[in-house]
């Protein structure tokens, strides 16, 4: 069973988040980053499957060289290999352009059984990469997966958590799975794991290595472009209702009735 997990760095806070010259999400260089909070869940999902079925877990990220640190965190958790897709042609893309780079990396790495990605990134919140990978690689997609029930050589059975209930779905492999938090409690990396990972070299693949047309990657290849990015309009201000509880409740109810929201 060969599983490829995709992770990404995200800014720790909204401060310093801005638009690049090409209309993509950018962050001032001096800001702190972390691995997307969903990433450890994705990695854990793949590690659990390896424990049961054997095989290997490869972790891939596309973007700045900062992400190398987070790939090493995944290696420390127990992933076998890591690859960073980097370079000016790949960085700074929207989720669709980034997914194209990831799909090209999957093709380059040969046969695989399963792809795992977080259901949505904490920065752009777009939930695009999983379904796009499914289309680009012509494999089935299973989103919002909260449980992997069964994996065998050519099928997977998962639980998708939706608005009104849970859907148990069976799919052929290879497939792409997007996971939600809580699927498995991620393990902490061992000290030995951390020490070993720190010494590993993470291979870096560029657009040329991927054999993908640079016009489809990065900022140049992004089908979406931001025009502005700003905090939402400030609230109009709160009206505090004072007085004894009974009086205050009466006043508040009258004001709400006046607003005709009921």
């Amino acid at each position: 069973m060969k599983t490829i997990v995709f992770i990404k760095e995200v800014p720790e806070t909204p401060d310093g988040v801005k638009i690049s010259d090409s209309g993509q999400l950018a962050v001032d260089g001096d800001r702190a980053f972390l691995t997307d909070p969903i990433d450890p869940y994705s990695v854990e999902t793949a590690l659990k499957i390896r424990e049961e079925k054997g095989g290997e877990v490869i972790v891939v990220s596309a973007g700045s060289t900062r992400a190398e640190k987070f790939l090493k965190e995944a290696l420390a958790m127990g992933a076998d290999e890591a690859v960073l897709l980097s370079g000016a042609e790949i960085e700074g893309g929207d989720p669709t352009a980034t997914a194209r780079a990831l799909a090209a990396a999957v093709r380059k790495s040969g046969d695989f059984d399963l792809l795992v990605v977080g259901d949505r990134a904490a920065d752009d919140n777009s939930a695009v990469v999983g379904p796009v990978l499914g289309q680009l690689l012509d494999i089935p997609v299973l989103t919002y997966v909260s449980e992997v029930r069964e994996v065998d050589a050519d099928t997977i059975r998962v639980v998708r958590t939706l608005e009104k209930g849970r859907e148990v779905v069976e799919s052929s492999l290879p497939a792409v799975v997007s996971v939600v938090k809580g699927i498995h409690e991620p393990r902490y990396p061992s000290l030995l794991g951390i020490r070993k990972a720190s010494k590993r070299e993470v291979p870096k693949w560029t657009a040329a290595d991927l054999g993908e047309d640079p016009a489809r990657l990065g900022a140049a290849g992004s089908p979406t472009r931001m025009r502005s990015l700003a905090p939402p309009p400030a609230p109009s201000g709160v009206e505090m209702i004072e007085g004894e509880v009974e009086e205050a409740a009466k006043t508040l109810v009258a004001k709400i009735i006046d607003r005709k929201v009921l």
Binding site: I19, G23, L25, P223, M226, L229, P232
Partner: peptide, 21 residues
């Protein structure tokens, strides 16, 4: 064609142009 959407869990609002061909 422009759309407004939330980034970073609603801490920022973006105006995004969809330039898909």
């Amino acid at each position: 064609v422009l759309a407004d959407r939330a980034f970073l869990g609603g801490n920022l609002t973006a105006v995004v142009e969809n330039r898909s061909e």
